[in-house]
Amino acid sequence: MELVNREEKELIKFLKKVIIFKNVSSSDLRHISQYLYTRHYQAGEEVFKKGFPNEMFYIVKEGELVAYLSEKNEEIELNKYLPGGHFGSIGLFADLKRTASVKAVEDSVLLGISKKDLATFVRRFPNAGIEILYAFGKEFCENIITLNERLVKH
């Protein structure tokens, strides 16, 4: 029992550092930790491929992963994910298939929550839900600004 508590405390300490959960209270983080599946991936192992249904949203706990597109036997790297980072957020909001493939570069540990469970959580704990949705909104805006700046440079 003691061990479980320590593990839970450690997990919540980690979640507090995740940008999506920045303003979520500890008690709500404890609730959301109930929905998180811990997954282990070996270096080189694929998490999902482009075109798969959007089922899970992942937070990187340990390791390193990349998002990439395969074109003509060539892999175009799109993004790198490090501990505290996350991927799969497009699927939470848009009804699309996976827009890119993701694989582990190092041995990695991911925390996954299903699209449906996150939606349930947001409805069940609206206070925490608002904070999470705002954090996503903020991040999407920042991504648009970065993309615009890149566009101007080119």
Binding site: T38, V47, E55
Partner: peptide, 17 residues
């Protein structure tokens, strides 16, 4: 969680679905 933890990565998202 303990049920899904025994399912391999390849079939994980499918089984959740």
């Amino acid at each position: 969680r303990s049920f899904f933890s025994i399912i391999g990565n390849r079939y994980f998202e499918f089984s959740i679905h």
